[in-house]
C-alpha cells in the first residue's frame, strides 16, 4: 500500500518545485515559514535566466523588483567620481539584492551584471503587496527580514560616520 501511495505522490509531485522550495527554505528571507507558505511565496516569484555579461538593471533605472540569485554569479558595480564602474560586491546563490525597490520607487543606486549564466528569482513589489494582503504571515516574515537588513546597513553607515567624524576631529 505505501508503494502505491509513493507512486501516486511521485506522479503528482513537482520535483523542480520541491528543489526550489528547499532553496528558499535556506534563505534568511524565508525564516520560520511553513512548507505551504514557502510554496505561496515561490508562486509570487518570477524566474529568468540571464546570460553572461547581461545587465539585470543599470544604475539610475527605476527599480521595482527584488532579485535573488538562484544559481550563477552577479556583480554589483557603481560609477566612481571619474565615471568608471567600480565593483562593490559579487553575489552568489542565495544572495538577494535590489530590496530597496520593494519599498520605494527610486533609481537604482548600482548596476547588476551577470558574471556568468545565472538564474534569478524576481519578486515584484505589487506581488509583495498581494502577499501582505492575502498571506500576512509570509508578508511579515519578508518585511521583518527587510527591516533587519536595513537596520544592519544603518548601523554600519552610522559606525562609518562615527569613525569618519572621530578621525576628522583628530
Amino acid at each position: 500500500m505505501p508503494s502505491v501511495l509513493d507512486s501516486l505522490k511521485r506522479f503528482f509531485e513537482d520535483r523542480r518545485f520541491s528543489a526550489r522550495l528547499e532553496f528558499l527554505r535556506d534563505l534568511p528571507l524565508c525564516e520560520g515559514l511553513r512548507r505551504h507558505e514557502l510554496g505561496s511565496l515561490q508562486q509570487s516569484f518570477h524566474s529568468r535566466v540571464y546570460k553572461e555579461g547581461e545587465a539585470l538593471f543599470l544604475e539610475g533605472d527605476i527599480g521595482r523588483a527584488l532579485f535573488i540569485v538562484e544559481s550563477g554569479k552577479v556583480e554589483l558595480t557603481k560609477r566612481g567620481p571619474d565615471g568608471s564602474p567600480q565593483r562593490i560586491a559579487e553575489l552568489g546563490p542565495g544572495s538577494l539584492f535590489g530590496e530597496m525597490a520593494l519599498l520605494e520607487q527610486l533609481p537604482r543606486s548600482a548596476s547588476a551584471i551577470a558574471v556568468e549564466k545565472s538564474e534569478m528569482l524576481l519578486l515584484y513589489r505589487s506581488k509583495l503587496d498581494e502577499i501582505l494582503h492575502y498571506h500576512p504571515r509570509i508578508g511579515v516574515a519578508v518585511m521583518r527580514h527587510l527591516a533587519r537588513l536595513l537596520s544592519a546597513r544603518l548601523r554600519r553607515v552610522s559606525d562609518q560616520v562615527t569613525t569618519a567624524g572621530a578621525s576628522f576631529s583628530r
Partner: peptide, 25 residues
C-alpha cells in the same frame, strides 16, 4: 509567460512584470 519573460530584453523585464501584475489583479 515564462518564455515571454525570458525573451524580453532585461531592461523591460520589470515593466513587463508590473504590467502583468496589474492586468492579473
Amino acid at each position: 509567460l515564462q518564455k515571454g519573460i525570458q525573451i524580453l530584453p532585461s531592461r523591460y523585464v520589470e515593466q513587463a512584470l508590473h504590467l502583468l501584475s496589474e492586468l492579473d489583479a
